[in-house]
C-alpha cells in the first residue's frame, strides 16, 4: 500500500501539470502566498497575536495606534489598531478566515449546482436543456451583485429574527446562486462534445444507466475546465463578499470579514488613520491576485493545445 502511494506521488510529481508548476515562477509564488493565507486563516486563533473579538482583551486606551514603525506605534500591534483598540493584523487574519470561508463555500455551492445543471442540460438535451439555459441567460443579464443583494434581501425579509446567526449561510447562498451559470455553460458545452464521443455511445450499448454514464464517463472528463473556473471564481466570490460586506449587507460587524474591515476603516480614512482600511485592503488585493494567478496558470497547464 505504501509503495503504491509512493508510486502515485512520484507519478503526479512527474506529470505534465506538476512539471509546468515547477517551471512557472508566478505559480509558485502565488501558491506560496495562497497557502500562507489559507494557513494563517485556518490557524488564526493560534497565529494571531491577539483575539480581537475577546472583549476582555480590548483596551480602549490602545485605540487607533499607528503601525509599529511610525511614531507612537506599539510593537505588540504591528499594523496598528482600530478605534476599539483591536489589533489590525489580528483582525485581518480573522477577517481573511471569514472571507476565504465564504469564498470557498459559495464556490462549492455554485460548482455543484452549475455542474449538475450543465450535465443534465447537455446530456438530456431537448426542452430541459432549453429551459435551464434560458434561465441561465436571464440570470446572466443581471449583475451578480444584484442577484446576491436580492437573495440577501429576501432572506432578511423571510427570516428577520435569526438573520444575524444565519448571515454566513445566507451570504454563501446568495453568492453561490449568482455564480452557477458559468459552470453550467462550460459543463454543458463539454458534455455536448463528450456525449457524442464513441466511448459514451459504447457505454450506452452496454445498457449503462444514463445517470451512471453522466457520473462515471462524462463528469470526469469535463472537470478540467470546471477546476479552472472554480479557482478564479474563488477570487470573484471573495470580492463579491467584500463588496456586500462593504455595503453593509454581508456578515455582521461582530464577525468582520475583510470587506467589513475595509468599510469600517473607510470612516477613518479622512481623519488620518489610513492603516485601519489600507492593510485589510492590501490583504484582500494580494489574496485575490494570488488566486487569480493560480487560476491562470492552471488554465494554461490544463490546456493541451498550449502544451509543448
Amino acid at each position: 500500500m505504501n509503495a503504491r502511494l509512493v508510486a502515485a506521488l512520484r507519478l503526479s510529481w512527474d506529470s505534465d501539470v506538476a512539471y509546468s508548476f515547477r517551471h512557472s515562477p508566478y505559480a509558485i509564488v502565488a501558491a506560496i502566498v495562497f497557502v500562507l493565507f489559507v494557513g494563517s486563516a485556518v490557524f488564526a486563533p493560534w497565529v494571531a497575536p491577539h483575539n480581537p473579538f475577546d472583549l476582555s482583551q480590548l483596551d480602549l486606551s490602545n485605540s487607533l495606534k499607528p503601525p509599529m514603525w511610525l511614531p507612537g506605534g506599539d510593537p505588540s500591534f504591528p499594523l496598528g489598531t482600530d478605534d476599539q483598540g483591536r489589533d489590525i493584523l489580528s483582525t485581518i487574519l480573522f477577517g481573511a478566515r471569514i472571507s476565504l470561508a465564504v469564498g470557498i463555500a459559495s464556490v462549492l455551492f455554485s460548482m455543484v449546482l452549475g455542474v449538475a445543471l450543465g450535465l443534465i442540460a447537455g446530456y438530456v438535451g431537448g426542452s430541459i436543456d432549453a429551459f435551464i439555459m434560458r434561465v441561465a441567460d436571464v440570470q446572466l443579464s443581471f449583475p451578480a451583485i444584484l442577484i446576491a443583494l436580492l437573495v440577501d434581501g429576501l432572506a432578511r425579509a423571510l427570516l428577520p429574527r435569526s438573520h444575524e446567526s444565519l448571515a454566513f449561510y445566507v451570504l454563501v447562498l446568495s453568492i453561490g446562486v449568482s455564480g452557477w451559470v458559468q459552470y453550467a455553460r462550460t459543463v454543458r458545452g463539454t458534455t455536448l462534445v463528450e456525449k457524442n464521443k464513441e466511448y459514451v455511445q459504447a457505454a450506452r450499448l452496454f445498457g449503462i444507466h444514463p445517470l451512471a454514464i453522466m457520473a462515471r464517463h462524462v463528469l470526469p472528463n469535463v472537470l478540467g475546465p470546471v477546476l479552472v473556473i472554480a479557482t478564479i471564481h474563488i477570487a470573484t466570490a471573495i470580492i463579491t463578499e467584500a463588496t456586500l460586506s462593504f455595503l453593509g449587507v454581508g456578515v455582521p460587524p461582530t464577525q468582520p470579514s475583510l470587506g467589513t474591515l475595509i468599510r469600517i476603516g473607510n470612516d477613518f480614512l479622512f481623519s488620518g488613520e489610513w492603516w485601519v482600511t489600507l492593510f485589510p485592503g492590501i490583504a484582500l488585493v494580494v489574496m485575490v491576485l494570488a488566486i487569480n494567478l493560480l487560476g491562470d496558470w492552471l488554465r494554461d497547464a490544463l490546456n493541451p493545445r498550449l502544451r509543448t
Binding site: 464521443k197 464513441e198 466511448y199 455511445q201 459504447a202 450499448l205 452496454f206 445498457g207 464517463h217 472528463n221
Partner: peptide, 17 residues
C-alpha cells in the same frame, strides 16, 4: 442488447481516456 455490439471508427475517442 448485449449480443449486438459495435466497433467504432476512432480508436482515440472510443475508449474513456
Amino acid at each position: 442488447r448485449r449480443k449486438l455490439q459495435m466497433i467504432f471508427q476512432d480508436p482515440y475517442a472510443s475508449l474513456n481516456p
